Each structure stands twice: as C-alpha cells, then as structure tokens.
Computed example of a mutant assay.
Amino acid sequence: MATLLRKIGLIRLHDRDTEDPKHHQGSLKGTKGNQKNNTKHCNTSNETNISTPEIKAKKFDHPVKDKPPVKEKQQGKDTKEKQQSSKPSSSIPSLAPHRQHCTQVRTRRLMKELQEIRRLGDNFITVELMDDNLFEWNVKLHQVDKDSALWQDMKETNTEFILLNVTFPDNFPFSPPFMRVLTPRLENGYVLDGGAICMELLTPRGWSSAYTVEAVMRQFAASLVKGQGRICRKAGKSKKAFSRKEAEATFKSLVKTHEKYGWVSPPVSDG
C-alpha cells in the first residue's frame, strides 16, 4: 500500500512537470517579456536621465561661446540704426541757419554798397542789377586816366563806358566776386580770353572782406592803364564778344599758374 501511494505521488509529480507545457512556456514568456520591458524602461529612463542634461548643457554652452544671443544682436542693430539715423538729423538743421546767416550778411553788405555807389558825385561808375538780381551787377566804368592811350581810344571810338559783369558768391564778402569784361573787346591791360581779369585781389588769396566794389573798380581802372590796355580795332576780332564760359576757364587757369609761380607786380615801364 505504501508502495502504491508512493507510485501515485510520483505520477502526480510527474504530471505536474509534464502537463500544460504551453502554460509554462507562456508564463515563462510573460516573465521574460516583463523582464525585457522592465529592462527597456529602465534603460530608457536611464538614458533620458543621463543624456538630457548633457544635451541641455551643450545647447546652453554653444550660443554663449560662439554666437551672441538673438536679443543682444537685435538690440545692437537697433542701437546702430538709431545712431545712424540720429547723425544726419543732427547735422541737417545746423546747415540751414548758417546759410541763412550768410544770405543776410551778403544782402546787407550789397544793399549798403549799392546805396553808396549811387551817392557818388563824380560819375566814376554806375550800377544796374541784372534781371533785378541783387547778387549780379552790370557795372559801367565811365572814367580811366585821361592821359592814357585807352582814354584816347574811348574818345575816338565813341565808347562811353567799359561794361563789366560782377557776380557775388554765397559767402560774399568773405570770398571775392567774379568779375569779367563784357564790352568793348579789350587787348592787354590784364584782360585775358573771355574778358577774364588778371588781378590778385580777385582771388581768395588776395581778397579781403574790407574791399568794396568801388575800390575794386578803381584798382581795375588803374591796372588797365598800367597794362597798356587798348580797345581792339582789328577787323573781325573786335566784333567777337567775350563769353562767360571762356572767362571762367581762363581765370581758373591763371589762378593756378600764379599760385605756382607767384604774383608779380607790373613792371615800371608799363605805367
């Protein structure tokens, strides 16, 4: 009996070990699957826990070392744009009062000189405004030295005056006027091509704001005589009028020449 019971117990133990192998495999698979899932989950959690700070640190360190923050860049650009926009705006208003002041000085000076010339009693010069423009005058020189050859030419040709055009720049009287002969056509007397006049006091180097138009005209009349100026009587050439463009070019050239070699006083033999 005992032997029989033992056999029965062995059979049951054997049945437990052999029955439902699929069940055991499934349970084992489930266990393995749980182990895998748990492993993966742990690995994932470990990876995120380790790698995430590293990535954040890299992202944080990179812009600080190599590139400035976007806000700082934008602020720098805005500051530069404000500085650039403020520069011209600050310089523009300063020019207008300066020009206005120069215009006022030039106007007052020319009005005063015009009144003084009209008060002259010797009829030395007369002035007409060119197209009612206060800054451009046509000046008639009525008198030169009566002992000169030029005065004799004026008498013989019935020339009542030598007509000149005078233009006053924006910064007059601190810069000289531009002066040229219109009629008659003159030779010598320091009158050059186009009617340009070779006089040092008409250059920025020789000019003084104390000079008046009347004083300049008297000096010009004297230089005509010293330079043995004559009225041109040659056929064809005497009828050719002086031109402003030619006068400006000639004057510019002679100023460069004299600045290089200096201004020489007329020889004594000239008058």
Rank of each mutant, 00 (worst) to 15 (best):
V268E: 15
W151V: 00
W263P: 03
W207C: 02
H142E: 01
S243M: 07
H62N: 08
D132Q: 15
P184I: 02
Q74V: 15
A215V: 06
K22G: 05
A235V: 03
N49G: 08
F161H: 12
F60V: 03
P169M: 01
K87V: 11
T31W: 13
K140H: 15
S51N: 07
S91P: 00
P267R: 09
D270K: 08
M179V: 14
H24P: 00
K234M: 08
E259F: 07
W137R: 00
K77L: 14
D131E: 13
V105G: 00
K77E: 07
Q115K: 09
Q143G: 00
Q228M: 09
K237M: 07
E187A: 09
K59V: 03
K65I: 11
E113P: 03
T250I: 00
D17Y: 08
G76T: 04
S253I: 01
E248Q: 09
A57C: 04
Q35H: 15
E128D: 15
P266M: 02
E19Q: 15
S175C: 10
M217L: 15
G76M: 07
T48K: 09
L192R: 08
H101A: 14
R233N: 05
A235E: 11
R106V: 03
P93R: 01
V225C: 06
A96K: 10
K226A: 12
L182P: 01
P173S: 04
G33V: 10
T183V: 10
S243D: 09
S86Q: 10
P184R: 02
I197H: 06
V268N: 11
P267T: 05
N123W: 04
P97E: 12
D15S: 09
N34P: 02
S51M: 09
R185N: 12
P88Y: 11
I117V: 11
T48S: 08
T167K: 14
R230N: 02
Y190T: 04
R12C: 15
L202F: 14
L202P: 07
L95D: 08
F161R: 06
Q100Y: 10
G229F: 05
P97L: 06
S90G: 04
D15L: 11
R233H: 05
R244S: 06
G76H: 07
S89Q: 11
K36I: 15
S86L: 13
L201A: 01
N171E: 13
H258R: 14
T31Y: 12
Q219Y: 04
V144Q: 04
L224Q: 08
W137N: 00
H101Q: 15
K71C: 01
T126F: 05
L110R: 04
H101I: 13
L5M: 14
M130T: 02
M179H: 01
Q84L: 13
I11A: 15
K32Q: 14
M199A: 14
F220G: 00
H101L: 15
D132Y: 11
K40G: 02
N37E: 12
K59A: 08
K71T: 09
V264T: 06
E160R: 10
Q115W: 03
L224C: 04
S223N: 10
A249W: 05
E19H: 14
L254G: 01
R16Q: 13
